[in-house]
Design a binder for these strands. Structure first.
Lengths: 166, 166
DNA sequence: GCACGGTGGTTACAATTGAAACTAATGTTA
DNA sequence: TAACATTAGTTTCAATTGTAACCACCGTGC
């Protein structure tokens, strides 16, 4: 046992960077691993990309949305939405109908087929999430929830206002 | 799967998905926001992409690595490493020398210039991290650390062994 | 009416990324 | 030492993504 009581554990040399402890890096690795694994599962079974599945997930809960409203909901780029929508149309997973009141606007919904696929993926998604957090205690799950919320607030500020001024 | 009728408050409808509460989704949004914001800062000031900066960060702590060893350290793809290395060489941020013992192998190090840039970025990186977690209590920071560690273990298992069998 | 700025959505093009093929050198087995 | 497998790293090509330009339509003011 080493007697390294001289410096508290939170002290970090400021002139070097321990990448494996650097939060932005760890978040990125974790998120990529999770997303890739899950998208492989969806993609293989239902020919869905992540953006396409996100669109379906939103339409499953909120019918009759336009592409612009999907942009709001998902924080995805409008071009990404447009591409996801057109691939979902090709697969007959969603339907698109013109809004008679505004002919620029097009109302999107899950199709019959789309609803079936949705109904099959949702339990899968819950299962993956459960499996991911299986090793967390229920306290930890609540903590994580709150922590992500706080981090998200800050990250959102960054992307809106630009970074730390300097 | 068990039916849980006993805890209505935490009960979640299993036949729909609240994307905004879905952990993989939230992780992805958070991580993208953070990475994009920070990479804008690095990139603008030092012409560095994220993979390039990662390579520098590792070389700053562990000199005399080969590309293959960088792959191990960073979990990045070897093609990504190759491209990052060649762009860093172009910028004179790193040096590359042949290993006489194995002429396939090439030993990488930060150059003088690279060390200067490294020394300027590291405090910036710490600053961004501090700013990101500024709203967390010290307990929450420790919790987050442990939680990410646990999640990472599971995600790693996913990418190694494939997903939940089904 | 009809110019106009603003909005919904798509297309085009360039940059980034990933998978697989490739070159060159080393290790291994007979 | 010839033949083959393995490792280090690069290149090539296709798919994905982001930025900007674009078209069609709406609403307002004149």
């Amino acid at each position: 046992m080493t007697n390294d009581h001289s410096a508290p554990e939170t002290a970090v040399k400021q002139d070097e960077l321990r990448l494996e402890k650097f939060l932005p890096y760890r978040l990125s690795v974790l998120s990529n691993r999770v997303s890739n694994a899950i998208s492989q599962a969806y993609g293989a079974r239902f020919h869905l990309t992540i953006p396409a599945w996100r669109v379906m997930a939103i339409l499953g809960r909120f019918p009759d949305l336009s592409a612009a409203e999907l942009v709001e909901q998902t924080a995805m780029d409008k071009v990404a939405i447009s591409r996801a929508v057109s691939s979902l149309l090709k697969n007959d997973y969603i339907t698109r109908s013109e809004d008679p009141a505004d002919r620029r606007r097009q109302v999107l919904n899950l199709s019959e087929l789309g609803r079936e696929v949705y109904a099959r993926i949702v339990p899968l998604a819950h299962q993956y999430e459960s499996d991911l957090i299986a090793s967390l205690s229920s306290e930890e799950r609540e903590q994580l929830d709150g922590i992500i919320e706080k981090l998200m607030v800050r990250a959102k500020e960054w992307s809106e206002r630009g970074l730390i001024d300097q």
